[in-house]
């Protein structure tokens, strides 16, 4: 486990690399209220998801691409939302996804939190949203 603050620092380093590739068309936004920084989350939980945003979102989009990370406290839970814009004709589905990024993430969550977590992926024409809730733990 790692503090959210430290996880975000790690993520920043990764994003800095991707910015060198796509900086001119990338718009990235991270919203995390001050009070949440010291809560714990599994180490590198966000990394594969943000990697997916680059791989399937940013690098496939002609013109500007957006990635948004939002952290919220909801009662005693931590809500994490990761949005990215996508190309609307992209045929993406968890069922036929061959990657291990997301399945690995779910596997880790269930080992750590058993059934006390949620993980959802939603997609509309232009956006993919990954939403995770885990218990707030220091």
């Amino acid at each position: 486990m790692i503090s959210l603050e430290a996880e975000l620092e790690l993520l920043d380093q990764y994003i800095a690399l991707e910015k060198r590739r796509f900086g001119d068309k990338l718009c990235i936004n991270i919203t995390c209220p001050e009070g949440l920084h010291y809560y714990s989350i599994p180490k590198l939980l966000l990394q594969p998801i943000v990697e997916n945003s680059f791989k399937h979102g940013v690098s496939q989009i002609l013109g500007e691409a957006e990635i948004k990370l939002i952290f919220k406290k909801e009662d005693d839970r931590l809500l994490i939302q990761i949005f990215n814009t996508t190309h609307h004709k992209m045929d993406w589905h968890t069922v036929n996804s061959k990657g291990i990024g997301l399945s690995n993430t779910v596997e880790r969550l269930s080992r750590i939190y058993h059934t006390d977590y949620s993980f959802q992926v939603r997609q509309n024409q232009s956006q993919i949203l990954v939403e995770i809730t885990i218990p707030l733990q220091v």
Binding site: R20, R21, F22, G23, D24, S59
Partner: peptide, 13 residues
């Protein structure tokens, strides 16, 4: 003299 055009979707490249 030669003229050139560079095409790459990555800025660094």
């Amino acid at each position: 003299k030669y003229t050139a055009v560079i095409v790459d979707d990555e800025q660094d490249a």
